[in-house]
Design a protein around this nucleic acid. Structure first.
Lengths: 212, 212
DNA sequence: ACAATAGTGTCTCTCAGACATTATCAA
DNA sequence: TTGATAATGTCTGAGAGACACTATTGT
């Protein structure tokens, strides 16, 4: 088959092409805080990322990078935006497609080569990574305003208090118990069980209702 | 300066890289409808687009493509998402960054080499262009739910009826006069003038208030 | 006078936000 | 009994949506 040629008679690969990378903000919920995964231990200063391989989907590159670099089985990478400043990477002309992946804490390995940092303290990172974290949190915030737990940060069974703590971490604000309860009550259902062994009236356990 | 080498000792350009294109849904408002610019005359079936040049910003590539291909002076390209299916373009491995640019009708040349088609009828386009139009309209819709005229589709002076028609075209629904009026009244101010020569009570003219 | 459009008053419903009260556990 | 937390009742105000009425023009 004849290769494609443009109006100047050139083929696609006669033109210079950029390297394309993916960088991912992996967010999780720990200690009542929303945290982001940074690659490496200690004073980690960057998000996990990699270059796109030939013929690879962006989402597969994201999963590969967080599996290889931080040992995390990724879930559903969400594309955020492309960073395209020509001089943003001194290694050359590199476009970076920023992604978000939300992973519940129970799926993170305990000994991984990564660092969890609260999103509120994720500053001073390399390249545009501060901004990626900010955009990722904004995206998550918008999603959690519209649904109870769209990104599965909560366990299978939970108390409304647990769910509220997730929402407070995502929103970055405190919420009143009673209002929150009424807001979510139609989207959850009781399991019948109660959580025992804690101080105070034992809370009911809930699960998420299947979406209509 | 030594070129960057990765852990395998290779330089960035030892790896295959994709071509990167931009494709843009240019939206405008004509005849009480939201319309999209298709490249070419007659049975035009694709959005304007081009390949990214070396060292070029994506937004500049967008402006260049709609200037060269349809003679339109672009405004503020908005990135939507990357289409990355490896086999989406039979010319080779091509990533396409979909964009949106909103251009008021008065800025479109009357004799341009382009076709205006209502967004509701923009189907059967090449590549992923149907979906780009859909995403572009969704994006615009979300913006117009939050502000009076964030993308400057309306003239400097306008009647509330004019503004309502823009909102109805964007939202794809009809809106009641009185409710719409109350919704926007704090974001516009009267110019003092009225529109004359029309049937019925002459409507007041408004302009957009400067944002607080 | 009549048709057509602009502009306003008002009612209802829903929902967020806040306060107060009752219920039920551990220590 | 006391302290802590769960769960519910109720009030208020803001805003969306719908209906009805008045106002002002051209024909």
């Amino acid at each position: 088959m004849e290769p494609y040629r443009d109006s100047s008679g050139r083929r696609l690969d006669d033109y210079p092409r950029p390297s394309v990378a993916v960088d991912t903000a992996v967010l999780t919920f720990e200690d009542e805080q929303l945290k982001v995964v940074l690659a490496g231990m200690g004073s980690a200063r960057r998000l996990p990322g990699t270059f796109l391989h030939e013929g690879e989907r962006l989402s597969d590159a994201v999963r590969r990078s967080i599996r290889d670099k931080v040992g995390i089985q990724g879930l559903q990478p969400q594309q955020l935006r492309v960073f395209d400043r020509p001089d943003r990477d001194d290694r050359g002309w590199v476009l970076s497609v920023a992604h978000l992946d939300v992973v519940p804490l129970r799926r993170l390995p305990s000994d991984g080569g990564f660092t969890l940092r609260p999103v509120t303290e994720a500053t001073g990172l390399q390249f545009d990574h501060d901004e990626i974290v900010r955009i990722a949190v904004d995206w998550l915030r918008a999603r959690y305003e519209e649904a109870v737990d769209p990104c599965a940060l909560i366990e299978e069974e939970f108390t409304l208090r647990d769910l509220q703590r997730v929402h407070e971490a995502v929103a970055g604000t405190s919420i009143q118990r009673d209002n929150f309860r009424r807001r979510v009550k139609d989207d959850v259902e009781e399991t019948g069980g109660r959580l025992t062994g804690v101080v105070g009236k034992p809370p009911r356990l809930f699960r998420k209702k299947a979406r209509d």
